[in-house]
């Protein structure tokens, strides 16, 4: 698996960055906040990448709308995620992360306690908080980018 340097690249997708251009100080602050949420020291880059791709798929969007790539994935795994499916054979923590991620875009109130508590117990409190923040911001970023992209044609 190829590991990418997530912090070295812009976090805000280009159409949204252009939309936020009139507010450079807020855009810079948003960039810093997102970089803190997408922290590969707290949640492994491959986990973030799997979740980013699943959230994008649930929006019917290109993964780039949810932020930068964090890691390379095997093609079969990427294809399953693009179909909105959890690939087989993942580490247990990643399967839990994807179970949580699947609820975020449209069913956030339906998320049961079990996968969150199991992820917290397996990975720790910092990882659990970071994962939930990352998932929520993948979702928000995707929505904001899709909306900003619609404005480009206006």
């Amino acid at each position: 698996m190829v590991q990418y340097s997530a912090v070295a690249q812009p976090v805000i997708p280009a159409p949204l960055a252009a939309h936020l251009e009139p507010l450079p100080h807020l855009r810079a602050g948003f960039e810093r906040f997102l970089a803190a949420c997408f922290d590969p020291d707290a949640v492994p880059a491959a986990t973030l990448e799997r979740c980013r791709r699943l959230v994008a798929a649930l929006h019917g969007a290109d993964p780039a709308a949810c932020g930068p790539a964090f890691a390379g994935l095997p093609p079969a795994e990427a294809e399953a995620l693009a179909r909105g499916e959890c690939p087989p054979g993942l580490p247990p923590a990643d399967a839990l992360a994807l179970e949580i991620a699947g609820c975020i875009p449209w069913r956030h109130h339906d998320l049961p306690d079990a996968p969150v508590l199991a992820y917290r117990d397996a990975c720790g409190e910092r990882a659990a908080v970071t994962l939930l923040a990352a998932l929520a911001m993948f979702d928000a970023l995707c929505r904001m980018t899709l909306a900003a992209s619609r404005l480009e044609g206006a």
Binding site: H19, L23, L26, F30, H108, D113, V116, L132, M137, A148
Partner: peptide
């Protein structure tokens, strides 16, 4: 332009942080 950008940013933050709060229980 700045007002619309602020509105989009605000809605994204409102939504994202509400979901963090909700999913943290």
């Amino acid at each position: 332009e700045a007002g619309l950008a602020a509105l989009t940013l605000g809605v994204g933050l409102f939504l994202g942080l509400a979901k963090v709060l909700i999913t943290l229980g």
